[in-house]
């Protein structure tokens, strides 16, 4: 009778240990929920990163278009021979004005 009680006690301890171990260390629904919540969080972050990327991409596109327009404008200016003559003419008038000023006594 005494060994029977010991056996029941032993089995009870083993069962309790297994249940505690299982609750603490073995994968279960709670761990799954945690992983799922983590996955949702990461998915949300990914979605934010994707949105942010598409905004940046759109900024890049518009900036590229602006740059293209401005480059064309600069190329037009550079191709315009009048630009060369304008600069020459400005230098010429500056030089002449300086010469006239140098001759002034007052």
């Amino acid at each position: 009778m005494k060994s029977y009680k010991h056996a029941i006690l032993f089995i009870g301890i083993v069962m309790a240990s297994i249940i505690v171990y299982a609750q603490l260390f073995m994968p279960n629904k709670k761990a799954f929920e945690k992983a799922k919540s983590n996955q949702e969080k990461v998915a949300q972050q990914k979605s934010l990163a994707k949105d942010s990327l598409s905004i940046e991409q759109s900024n890049l596109d518009s900036l590229t278009a602006v740059r293209e327009t401005k480059s064309q404008r600069v190329e037009e200016f550079i191709a315009d021979t009048g630009l060369y003559w304008l600069i020459q003419e400005i230098d010429k008038y500056d030089r002449l004005a300086q010469r006239a000023k140098d001759l002034q006594l007052q």
Binding site: L86, E89, I90, Y93, D94, L96, A97, Q98, A100, K101, L103, Q104
Partner: peptide
């Protein structure tokens, strides 16, 4: 150019 020309004009006028 307009400014440079005007400066020359003023300098000549003063001289």
């Amino acid at each position: 150019l307009e400014t440079a020309r005007s400066q020359y004009g003023k300098a000549i006028y003063a001289l």
